[in-house]
Design a protein around this nucleic acid. Structure first.
Lengths: 115, 115
DNA sequence: TGTCATTTATCAAAAATGATATATATGTGT
DNA sequence: ACACATATATATCATTTTTGATAAATGACA
């Protein structure tokens, strides 16, 4: 499991880093961020896609705003949210990799077949 | 910010994924995992390196155990902990990348120098 | 028995969460 | 201007979870 990572930055900024992870550490917010990863969306669309109840969604979005990882743009009645923090994307990418079917696993159609 | 990620796996397993992130979403546990990323350590060493109060550290370690991302080995009086979940390493690697000084930033000595 | 290393139990304070109600902002029809 | 609808935000409340601190329990070994 030794990975040879240079973790000094993470260690030194543990509060900041863990704070960012905390934002993704609830299924609702994680889903929200997943949707926004595909591009800007108005609140109503996020609500429809994630199924998160509107007031709670709004509270979560407020939190993401406060933490500075999303920004907003108003277009008449709608408010569009989008991700602004590249660090979030980096983490999401890692999650995709980490949770992708393991190379060599039965259901990974893009890889070789065994035996 | 569009990243072209295949997030289906993450969306489908939002509970599981966010649960894993929750483990890293507190500075103490994040520090613990950082230390373990460098290799197996006994509790006393983790305590010394992270400065986390011993009973709380033990509770955090119990949680990591319960969630299955560390395993233990007893050697007489000491108990050695080590990371067993490759997904954790993947996330830590992403964090290192995300929080590393931006390429071209003044204090990144390993990269090219500009102008 | 005693000591070291670690775990478990307990408690109070703080934070997160889901649910519900209310408020604000924008736009529309009159 | 008024009333009304839509889109989003804020407030409140009860419940649960997390956290730091402190005390007590367990397991290994001299």
């Amino acid at each position: 499991m030794q990975a040879g990572l240079d973790l000094e930055m993470v260690r030194a900024r543990a509060e900041e880093v863990s704070g960012l992870l905390k934002l993704l550490s609830h299924p609702n917010r994680l889903l929200v961020v997943c949707e926004l990863a595909d591009g800007e969306l108005p609140v109503s669309a996020i609500e429809a896609r994630t199924g998160v109840a509107q007031p709670n969604l709004s509270r979560d979005l407020a939190r993401l705003r406060t933490e500075g990882i999303v920004s907003t743009r108003r277009q008449s009645k709608q408010i569009f949210y989008s991700l602004t923090d590249p660090r979030i994307i980096a983490v999401m990418r890692a999650l995709c990799d980490a949770f992708a079917p393991a190379p060599g696993a039965a259901n990974d159609s893009s890889k070789e077949y065994v035996s």
